[in-house]
Structures are given as structure tokens and as C-alpha cells.
């Protein structure tokens, strides 16, 4: 069983990562218990294959154990840092693989996402802002940004899916990123 996501707050996760950097195994187990379902969701969405996602998740937690002190040098919130570790691991893995595999049986185990009210409140503003900014983009470009981020699709794959030349896709996304940045900083 995965513990209810209601129980965890951002400052709890910071403290757990802190203790992991101090080589505290109890903290590591607790961090795993609190965050592995979310990070597994990341791996699964990108890799779309249960056993690859399980392998990737192990790599993710090995990185977290080894590099917990790197979190200090970044200004990221603890959950953003953890998600970045997981996304990078999964995306690196899928880039190494030639053919994306599809095995969505794994989607059956999706847990009802119930983030805690505190982090919801904190995240709400940011989330609304990025939604508003994405809406300022043309619809298919906003879609492409979202699937690049969430599914880890490459320029190549996106160009194929949208039936446009690679360079066009690159220009779309670069312009979209710059517009997003401009909108978020407005």
C-alpha cells in the first residue's frame, strides 16, 4: 500500500532528503514510501512499459541516495527536484532506446491523486499561471509542449506525430518556450 499523499508536505520532504544526504536509511525508506508512487508515475508515463519503469525507478532512487546533497545547490522545491531526477532518468533511458514500446497494462494501478491541501494551495497559483500562459499559445503548440514535458517526446517524434518537418517543430517549440517564459515573468 502507498501511504495517503495527504500526509506529506513540502517541508517534510525537504527534511527527508536532508537526512538521506546524511546517509539515514530510515529517512530513505520513508522518502521512498512517500514519493515513489509519484516518481513511478513519471517513469511509467515516459517509458510506457512496466518493467522498464520499475528499473528506471530503482535508478532514480539510487541517484537520490547518491546525490541528495546536490539538492542544496539548486533553488528547486523538493518535489520539483525529485521529479526532475525521475524525468531525466526516464527521458535519458527512452532516448537510448530505439523503438518506444507500448504496454499500458500498468495504467490499471493508478492511484487516485489527492495532493495535500497545503501543497495544493501553494501550487495552485503557479499551476493557474502556467495554464493561462499555455492558453496564450496556439492549441496544437501548447499540446506539443505538454506532451514533450510529460511523455518525454523528442523533436523527431513530435514532428512525426504532427506531420511537420523537424525544423518546423523545433521552431514551434522554441518560440513557445520563449512565449511561456515571457508570459510567466509578466
Amino acid at each position: 500500500m502507498v501511504e495517503s499523499p495527504l500526509a506529506i508536505t513540502s517541508s517534510d520532504i525537504t527534511k527527508l532528503i536532508l537526512r538521506v544526504a546524511m546517509r539515514d536509511r530510515v529517512a530513505f525508506d520513508s522518502l521512498y514510501q512517500q514519493t515513489s508512487a509519484k516518481l513511478f508515475g513519471v517513469c511509467l508515463r515516459v517509458l510506457k512499459n512496466q518493467s522498464e519503469a520499475e528499473d528506471a525507478l530503482q535508478e532514480v532512487f539510487i541517484k537520490i541516495w547518491d546525490k541528495a546533497d546536490r539538492f542544496a545547490a539548486s533553488d528547486l522545491s523538493p518535489i520539483s527536484w525529485l521529479v526532475a531526477v525521475a524525468r531525466n532518468q526516464a527521458i535519458d533511458r527512452i532516448r537510448e532506446r530505439r523503438q518506444p514500446s507500448v504496454d499500458m497494462d500498468s495504467a490499471l494501478n493508478v492511484i487516485d491523486p489527492r495532493p495535500d491541501p497545503e501543497s495544493l494551495a501553494a501550487a495552485n497559483h503557479e499551476r493557474r499561471r502556467i495554464q493561462i500562459c499555455l492558453e496564450e499559445l496556439e492549441k496544437d503548440r501548447a499540446e506539443a509542449v505538454r506532451s514533450a514535458y510529460l511523455d518525454g517526446e523528442s523533436y523527431d517524434e513530435l514532428a512525426n506525430r504532427y506531420g511537420v518537418p523537424l525544423n518546423t517543430m523545433r521552431t514551434w517549440l522554441r518560440r513557445s518556450l520563449l512565449k511561456l517564459r515571457e508570459c510567466l515573468e509578466r
Binding site: 500500500m1 502507498v2 499523499p5 521512498y32 515513489s36 508512487a37 509519484k38 513511478f40 508515475g41 513519471v42 511509467l44 508515463r45 520499475e54 525507478l57 530503482q58 539548486s74 533553488d75 528547486l76 522545491s77 520539483s80 527536484w81 521529479v83 526532475a84 524525468r87 500498468s106 495504467a107 494501478n109 493508478v110 492511484i111 491523486p113 495532493p115 501550487a123 503557479e126 499551476r127 499561471r129 502556467i130 495554464q131 505538454r146 514535458y149 510529460l150 511561456l180 517564459r181 510567466l184
Partner: peptide, 22 residues
């Protein structure tokens, strides 16, 4: 950029991990 785009990660669902992984 991680910070700017991080709200998109809310769309990742939580998925139960088999015990064998831990």
C-alpha cells in the same frame, strides 16, 4: 526552467509500485 515548467508535473499520476522494486 525546471521551476517554470514544474507545475506541468502535477499531471503525473501516482501509481502503486510493486514491493519487489524496493
Amino acid at each position: 526552467w525546471e521551476q517554470r515548467l514544474s507545475p506541468l508535473a502535477d499531471a503525473y499520476q501516482q501509481v502503486e509500485v510493486p514491493h519487489s522494486v524496493k
